[in-house]
Simulated scan of single mutants.
Amino acid sequence: MNEPVEALLFDLDDTICEYCRPGSEILDLAFEDVGIEPVFTADDYYAVFEDHVEDSEDVVENRERCFAALAEEAGHDPDVGLAVADAYEAERDQTNVQWLPGAQEALDTLRERYAVAAVTNGGPKMQRAKMRGLGIDDHFETVVFAGYDVAAKPDPEPFEMALDAVGVGPERAVKVGNSLKNDVAGAHNAGLRSVWIDREGVPNPDPEPHHRIEAMDELLDEPWA
């Protein structure tokens, strides 16, 4: 793989950003935003999460179904649960995200050098809210919501869709992400080079990435060069 790199494909969650408050705190804020006392807890939500997965297109719809059912069970109109779900989404996905160390500098700098795309296993509504919260919704030439637009990572299809959009072949592209299973394996399945963000010092990663970094700002040294 000696071809010069022209495109970088980035993961989003735990690569560029992370949540900064727990779900229980976000739920309390959502009830406060709606103007009612809490009628169910985060543990109640987690307990029924799987009950509505098959009937939901994404995690946002599943949350709405869960909250509506829990509100009704507590003696309230299901619309109360839907209002809380809307407030929860706004708090969690737009105001509750923060940059990971080195990520902002790396993304701001590298988008001037390369074509950049995002390939993320996450629903469009939820992931776009995170990008708006960080102010990066216009930073990528394309965003592929794997598992929604196309198959989920590590299937090669989402990587191929992103590369088609930026007009770069896999031999000239690098995938950057924190997941060995999804990002590294997916990159290799699609014929890309991989850069894995290893914050734990894993001794024998499987699969073996082409390059390993501890923080995003190490990308500025262009380890693939």
Results as ranks from 00 to 15, higher is better:
214 E>M: 05
58 D>P: 00
100 L>A: 04
217 D>L: 02
208 E>W: 05
59 V>M: 11
218 E>H: 00
99 W>N: 06
27 L>M: 05
210 H>M: 04
121 N>K: 05
67 F>I: 04
181 K>G: 11
102 G>K: 09
131 M>Q: 13
196 W>E: 03
84 V>T: 01
43 D>S: 13
15 T>C: 04
131 M>K: 14
104 Q>S: 07
167 G>I: 01
151 A>H: 09
156 P>V: 04
187 A>T: 03
114 Y>W: 04
177 G>E: 08
95 T>P: 02
135 G>F: 07
165 A>F: 07
108 D>Y: 06
208 E>D: 11
40 F>R: 04
196 W>M: 03
25 E>D: 07
205 P>K: 02
61 E>K: 03
214 E>A: 11
82 L>N: 12
152 A>D: 10
203 P>S: 12
63 R>T: 07
38 P>Y: 07
220 L>H: 00
170 P>K: 15
112 E>K: 13
138 D>L: 04
193 R>S: 04
136 I>M: 11
9 L>D: 11
135 G>V: 01
224 W>I: 00
137 D>S: 07
110 L>I: 02
159 F>M: 09
154 P>V: 01
11 D>P: 01
161 M>N: 12
29 L>S: 10
138 D>K: 15
211 H>R: 11
62 N>T: 09
101 P>S: 06
153 K>S: 05
33 D>S: 14
21 R>T: 11
169 G>E: 15
10 F>W: 15
48 V>R: 14
224 W>F: 05
113 R>F: 11
44 D>K: 08
192 L>E: 00
34 V>Q: 02
187 A>E: 00
96 N>P: 04
167 G>Y: 10
10 F>G: 03
81 G>R: 04
43 D>M: 13
127 Q>A: 01
31 F>H: 03
145 F>I: 02
159 F>H: 02
122 G>H: 02
127 Q>P: 00
188 H>M: 12
37 E>V: 13
82 L>P: 06
149 D>Q: 04
225 A>D: 08
163 L>D: 07
185 A>Q: 13
222 E>G: 05
198 D>A: 02
68 A>D: 05
225 A>C: 10
60 V>L: 00
168 V>R: 15
190 A>G: 05
71 A>M: 05
51 D>Q: 12
3 E>V: 13
142 T>Y: 13
104 Q>Y: 04
97 V>S: 06
52 H>G: 00
5 V>I: 13
214 E>K: 12
112 E>S: 13
16 I>H: 12
122 G>L: 06
15 T>K: 07
